[in-house]
Design a protein around this nucleic acid. Structure first.
Length: 424
DNA sequence: TCTCCGATTAGAC
DNA sequence: CTAACGGTCTAATCGGAGA
């Protein structure tokens, strides 16, 4: 019997994605060391190569970088998710033209199944070139027999300029594979983070090769099923299928850190009703409803000098809902129950869980259906789709300022808003 | 003793 | 001038409560 054809999975990953999105519309910044900050202009979430070279760390709080930034003229921008989402969609639709089987894994990554296709190197360069030509986005391509090895190959493509942005693990000999894995620290393997790296080191596992060759029963007993899957994937045995259609969310969270100090109930309610609007819109977009609503409030956990209060309260509903107004009433009630004066709140949010498709709605013996409410929400979604998010709001939204996040250096919405184009 | 549940942990990006 | 540290999501695991 012939062995089955080896899978060829390509992981296409955009380089420094958020920074690259910004640079596409500001070619003058091509060589300027720069970073993009998280919401509230808090932490560094994307770095140009120049910023990496200067020692700026991923996830580092921006205020910690200020001195270094001033010294070297590092530019910081607020994140512009409307822009990044739109650029991502453009890149993904180009990749889909190359192979029907793909999984959009994250905003800047896509697994593309190239199994059985000839001349993978040429094909990969063609993908890179077309994405670059049509969108301006630089990407690297890693090919492997499993997702984990495709990821690993992509890492090699990114790190070694000689690869010119493409690396094919499948094309290596057994000896070359051994060499490569032996030189790769185990923390570079997908699924191995900080904690596991430490625990693995205690057991003498330092490189990807060590992990591939580790004694399975011990590994399994000590680290669980996830690590076993990772090991098998390193052994070229696929354990993670390609998910072509994104699964419905099982939980939807909407939360924000506040830009300013929030001490008053109405301001919290204002913020929370905005979170409700966002979360319920997501819920309706996937045709689901939720049976548990949870609200949480948080003071600033980094201010050890101030009193801390981090309450959280949930309500199970007798029947699930996706109605913003109904959810809003529950959220307001839960918030009021927990609110205490004399604390400075830094963050709040809501969690919708026990989510199920609306088609599975249980008939309620006591409560009649409310079709009018469904129509109201449909109309609201349509208006917000046509005129932009927030065109129609609930009355508790927007009356109180002071909680909105800080975004001092946001670029224009180049691709999604005519009004943002200064030259139009 | 078995099962279920909530909380905690770890990871990705 | 001072204070300034993200947001969403999933899966596994563990310990205690309840059947």
């Amino acid at each position: 019997m012939l062995p089955p054809t080896q899978q060829a999975l390509a992981l296409v990953d955009c380089n420094n994605f958020y920074v690259s999105c910004e640079r596409i519309f500001r070619p003058d910044l091509a060589r300027v060391p720069m970073v993009v900050l998280s919401n509230n202009d808090g932490c560094v979430v994307s770095r140009s190569n120049e910023a990496k070279a200067l020692g700026i760390k991923m996830g580092q709080p921006w205020f910690e970088c200020k001195a270094l930034a001033e010294e070297h003229g590092i530019l910081a921008m607020s994140s512009n998710y409307a822009l990044y989402a739109d650029m991502s969609n453009r890149v993904m639709s180009i990749l889909r033209d190359f192979a029907p089987q793909c999984e959009v894994y994250s905003i800047d990554e896509c697994f593309v199944d190239l199994t059985g296709l000839p001349r993978l190197r040429e094909l990969s360069y063609a993908m890179r070139e077309r994405v670059g030509l049509w969108t301006g986005m630089p990407v690297c391509v890693g090919i492997g027999p499993t997702k984990t090895l495709a990821k690993l190959a992509n890492h090699v493509a990114k790190k070694h300029p000689r690869s010119k942005g493409v690396f094919n693990y499948n094309a290596l000999t057994a000896e070359q594979k051994k060499q490569l894995l032996s030189r790769l620290p185990v923390e570079e393997v997908w699924g191995v983070g900080r904690k596991l790296t430490q625990r693995l080191a205690q057991r003498g596992v330092h490189t990807a090769f060590d992990l591939r060759e580790a004694h399975l029963p011990t590994l399994r007993a000590e680290f669980g099923v996830v690590m076993e899957k990772t090991q098998r994937e390193l052994q070229e045995i696929p354990c993670m299928p390609l998910d072509q259609v994104p699964a419905d969310k099982k939980q939807i969270i909407s939360s924000r850190s506040f830009g300013g100090k929030v001490t008053e109930l109405p301001v919290l309610q204002d913020a929370l009703s905005t979170f409700v609007a966002n979360a319920c819109a997501k819920l309706r977009a996937q045709n689901s409803h939720a049976a548990v609503i949870q609200v949480f409030l948080q003071t600033n956990r980094f201010r050890k000098d101030l009193p801390q209060y981090m309450p959280s309260l949930a309500v199970p509903l007798p029947y699930p809902t996706n109605d913003s107004l109904e959810v809003n009433r529950w959220v307001a009630y839960l918030c009021e129950r927990m609110f205490k004066p004399d604390y400075t709140y830094k963050k709040a949010g809501i969690v919708l869980s026990e989510i199920s498709p609306v088609t599975q709605r249980q008939g309620d013996l006591l409560e009649a259906d409310k079709p009018d409410q469904h129509k109201l929400m449909q109309a609201l979604d349509q208006l917000n789709a046509r005129y932009g998010r927030g065109a129609v709001k609930v009355s508790t939204q927007g009356a109180y300022a002071g909680w909105q996040m800080k975004q001092e250096r946001k670029s224009p919405n180049y691709t999604t808003s005519w009004a943002d184009l200064p030259w139009v």
